[in-house]
């Protein structure tokens, strides 16, 4: 039983990692007033660019860095549409997802051809912090990116709630007119937020390709971006709650994959649906008090 729980906790952290990165990315976007539905495509492009750079350069960290830059590019494109041009955010976000997905698939075929065996790299290995402890050693034998994701939670909290930039970010998402009146460039601030957000989404996607799998394939993100859109509402746009949300989803996912093997006579679909059911329930409960950034979805046009 003890092993079972330790095993689930370790799996939870792995499953939660890409969700933490990408949801924190979405937090920056939405705190600035932009719903970024480009998240799924940005993660996909991050997974692609990270894998490709790692494969061509031979360095996994070059891969992560490239995914970060690729994500920034995607966030910047989103800002061109939704911030500069004031396009409807649902439309521009889905457009970015389409574009980045197609670009990644196209680039992948151009660079790697049509091989039946997926090109692969040796991915990151897990880093054990407590090699001598049987329990903690097992739990904290994780990818470096997982530790970085967890470390980002207090950092993002500090940036959002304790810095000038964070104050401006929150105010531009609540009341861009007043922020503008205070002499802050709304367009610039929102662009920066989207670029930071895109960078985090890109790294979240790269976790899948350069850490977890060591390969890139279409369908690698498999809807995780959309899960993050739900998690950010569950988290009420608060970084610490992002962690709880991602861990909740991850733990139920880890639990269901083990419950399937216990031979309990229930349809497997029931287990597979569990993480989503729990997320929806949690969202329903937590979402009642959700306080959306007041200017979310509203393009800002300077009078």
């Amino acid at each position: 039983m003890g092993d079972f729980i330790v095993d689930i906790i370790a799996a939870t952290l792995r499953i939660a990692t890409p969700l933490i990165f990408a949801t924190l990315g979405e937090l920056f976007c939405e705190r600035a007033g932009i719903l970024n539905l480009g998240i799924e495509g940005t993660m996909f492009f991050g997974a692609f660019s990270g894998f490709t750079a790692a494969s061509l350069s031979g360095s996994l960290w070059v891969g992560v860095l490239t995914a970060l830059v690729g994500g920034m590019l995607s966030g910047w494109l989103m800002s061109l549409l939704s911030v500069r041009l004031g396009v409807n955010q649902h439309v521009s976000g889905l457009g970015i997802t389409l574009l980045m997905t197609a670009l990644a698939l196209f680039g992948f075929r151009v660079i790697f051809g049509e091989s039946r065996v997926l090109p692969s790299i040796t991915p990151f290995s897990q880093l054990s912090i407590f090699p001598n402890s049987p329990v903690l050693g097992e739990i904290f034998s994780q990818y470096t990116l997982t530790y970085i994701a967890i470390a980002l939670i207090p950092i993002v909290w500090w940036v959002v709630f304790r810095t000038n930039f964070g104050l401006n970010l929150r105010s531009v998402g609540d009341n861009p007119e007043a922020t503008d009146a205070a002499g802050i460039n709304v367009y610039r601030l929102r662009t920066i937020a989207l670029v930071i957000g895109g960078a985090l989404m890109g790294v979240g996607g790269a976790f899948l390709s350069v850490a977890q799998l060591g390969s890139f394939t279409f369908g690698i993100v498999a809807g995780r971006g959309w899960v993050c859109i739900a998690l950010i509402i569950f988290a009420n746009w608060h970084p610490v709650k992002v962690l709880w949300g991602a861990l909740l989803f991850g733990s139920v996912q880890a639990l269901q994959s083990r419950l399937q093997l216990t031979g309990i006579k229930l349809p497997y679909e029931l287990f597979m649906a569990l993480p989503y059911v729990v997320t929806i329930l949690a969202l329903t409960l937590a979402g009642r008090n959700a306080s959306y950034p007041a200017a979310l979805l509203k393009p800002y046009k300077r009078e």
């Binding site: 390969s215 394939t217 369908g219 498999a222 994959s257 497997y268 597979m272």
Partner: peptide
């Protein structure tokens, strides 16, 4: 066990 998807390698 089933993953209920044709593509989700992770």
């Amino acid at each position: 066990s089933f993953i209920n998807s044709f593509f989700d390698p992770a």
